[in-house]
């Protein structure tokens, strides 16, 4: 299993892995916002965490279609499914999700504080946004894995995955943003939405891989 994690991670880092695509997209969206809404620093700092979260959500969706499709194209997916008796297939999916998250999404979390400065977010707010992103984005990957598994046989499945997955990620977005706000705006709570966000991630870490494994098993042809 560790071998699978390391292989997927090194594939995402090497040429053609697409790990950079997500970061550049994230950067582009966040940098474009101040030009769009104007240089009102108060407004920017108010909407900043939400912009970071929306940009991260979209950047997460960007690379999801390759999660299983790359393996399917070169035949590896068959062998991963075939060894389901040795390695529980849902666990294989979980490991692939974690490798995908580490390779493609963790860089976004690390880049978030820098982009938070562009949005004039207070230091506490930047810390909160980074923390909520780190806790919440795995949930998006786990939901996305289900979409990626369902659409694995489709040649241009990327858009379909985004359409399938986006509505399901809305709760993650809501609690992620409200926790980020809660850290900065005093009467709003931070802990409650943050804990719900963590619970969502843990819940989806179980449901997502199991559902994706089912879809993969029955989607083979």
């Amino acid at each position: 299993m560790l071998a699978l994690y390391l292989r997927d991670l090194s594939l995402s880092i090497r040429a053609g892995g697409g790990a950079l695509t997500g970061i550049i997209f994230f950067l582009a969206v966040v940098v474009a916002v101040p030009f769009g809404v104007g240089p009102d620093l108060n407004l920017l700092s108010r909407i900043g965490p939400a912009i970071l979260w929306i940009a991260a959500l979209l950047a997460c969706l960007l690379g999801l279609d390759r999660l299983f499709q790359a393996d399917r194209e070169d035949g590896s997916l068959d062998l991963l499914v075939l060894s389901a008796d040795r390695h529980f297939l849902a666990l294989t999916v979980l490991v692939k999700c974690l490798a995908h998250w580490t390779g493609s999404v963790l860089p976004l979390v690390i880049a978030a504080p820098l982009l938070g400065l562009f949005m004039n977010i207070a230091p506490v707010g930047i810390g909160a946004a980074m923390l909520t992103l780190a806790v919440g984005t795995p949930a998006i990957t786990f939901i996305g894995a289900v979409g990626a598994a369902v659409a694995v046989a489709l040649p241009r499945g990327g858009l379909l995955i985004s359409v399938l997955v986006l509505p399901l990620t809305i709760p993650v977005l809501i609690f992620g943003v409200s926790a980020s706000y809660g850290a900065v705006h005093d009467p709003d709570p931070f802990m409650q939405p943050f804990l719900i966000l963590a619970a969502l991630t843990l819940f989806l870490a179980v449901i997502g891989p199991v559902a994706a494994a089912l879809a993969l098993r029955h989607g083979a042809d």
Binding site: A3, R7, S10, L11, G75, S76, H87
Partner: peptide
């Protein structure tokens, strides 16, 4: 199962590919 496709990653070296399948 050895199908039409080789189940190897083009970005990895031959040894890395085989070492992965050996581990897995």
């Amino acid at each position: 199962y050895l199908g039409h496709s080789n189940a190897m990653k083009t970005a990895l070296t031959v040894v890395e590919n085989l070492a992965f399948w050996r581990d897995f």
